[in-house]
Structure formats: C-alpha cells, structure tokens
Simulated assay, not measured.
Amino acid sequence: MIQYSLKCAQEHRFDSWFQSAEAFDKLKSAGMITCAVCGSSDVEKAIMAPRVRPSRNSPSAQPDAPSAPAPDATPGPSLSAPASPAEQALAEMKRKIEQNSEYVGNKFVREARAMHSGDAPERAIYGEARVDEAKQLIDDGVPVIPLNFVPGRKTN
C-alpha cells in the first residue's frame, strides 16, 4: 500500500491510499479519482515528505534511544476536530440540524409519514431509519434526505 498526498485544480488537498503506484495511475487515467472536497476529477499528486523508517541498526531504532520531539514541533490536530474542509462543513451541518430540529429517534419513519399526510404538524425532524424504510419514504414522495452522521446523543 502507498499513501499519496493529492490536490485538485481548486487546490483542495487530501490524502488517499492505493495498492501501488500503478494502481493510482490506472485509476487516475480512468477518471476514478476525485477530490474529496469538491468532487473534481482534475486531481494530481501533491508534493509530500517521504516517510522513511530508520534501519534496525540506527540509534533511533533502538528501544532505549530517547525520542525527543523537535523543538519547533507543534501538536497535530485533535482526533475529534474536523481535519478537512469537507469534515468541517459536515460538522457545521450536524450542529445546525441538531440545534434547529427535533430528534425523533427510531420514530422517524412514522413521524415523517404523519407530517406528509397532514396528521402531524410540520416541523424539522431528524432520526433513524433503515435503508429500506428510507427508500420507501422517497418512493412514496415523502421529502427526506439521508444524513451522514450519528446523532450527538448516540456518540461516545
């Protein structure tokens, strides 16, 4: 496996893993590599620092060798903080939905149908539905959209 740092024509930068350099070239020529932020297929490899492991005989590879951080090293991003513009946009969308909508949990399908038929007052809701239930709502003309996040109350 090989990891490449990539960028699109709009200068969005992201990383991706490939089976080999040849696999990257094959996927790129087929137009199957797209920007993770804007979806553009005009993607190129970006300049990146190589990651070379020290040899087994080098002092830095020895277990008792102290590994002091570089004096100008700054801590990396937090695992809980959004790293890319796409993740930041998704986090903001999640925050707004949770702030301005009512969470109905696994009653989502019933509530959405009731609002669509006029049996319940219209309001912004979000909740959970199985894929087959969501498809049936869409087929029945109930305006719903899948969300790509877990509600805050369900996260650890």
Rank of each mutant, 00 (worst) to 15 (best):
V142T: 02
E92K: 10
Y103R: 02
L6I: 09
A112Q: 00
M93R: 10
L6M: 03
Q3K: 15
R13E: 03
N100L: 12
S29R: 11
G76W: 02
V131M: 14
M93G: 09
A120C: 10
I125R: 02
T34V: 07
Q136Y: 03
T155N: 09
Y103M: 04
G39L: 03
G31E: 05
A23K: 06
P66T: 10
A73W: 00
P146N: 06
E111I: 10
C35H: 00
R113Q: 13
K154G: 13
I145Y: 11
K107S: 13
P143N: 15
A91E: 04
A129R: 01
I138E: 10
A36K: 04
E102H: 07
A73N: 02
N148H: 12
F24C: 09
C35R: 00
L147P: 02
I2A: 05
F149Q: 03
R51M: 05
P82M: 02
I47N: 13
R123V: 00
A124F: 13
I125G: 07
V150N: 12
R95Q: 10
R95F: 10
G31V: 09
A23Y: 03
A89P: 08
E111C: 13
A86D: 07
N57T: 07
P71C: 03
P63I: 15
N106K: 12
P121R: 13
A83H: 07
I138R: 14
K96G: 11
V142G: 09
A112G: 02
S84V: 01
P121V: 03
P85F: 01
A36T: 08
E102T: 07
H12E: 03
P121L: 08
A124S: 15
A83D: 06
Q19G: 12
S41N: 10
V104A: 02
D72Q: 09
S5H: 11
K154C: 14
C8Q: 01
G76R: 01
A36C: 03
A112H: 00
T34L: 02
V37Q: 05
F108E: 02
E133Q: 15
L90V: 15
G152F: 08
P50D: 09
L147Q: 04
R110K: 14
A61Q: 09
S29N: 10
R13H: 06
I145H: 11
D42I: 00
G141A: 04
A30I: 08
I145C: 12
P59N: 05
T155L: 14
T34G: 06
M32E: 13
V37W: 04
P146Y: 04
A124L: 13
A89Y: 06
L137V: 01
S60A: 12
A68S: 11
E102R: 11
S41G: 05
L79F: 14
T155D: 08
D42F: 00
K7R: 15
S58F: 04
K107R: 13
A91R: 05
R123E: 03
P143V: 07
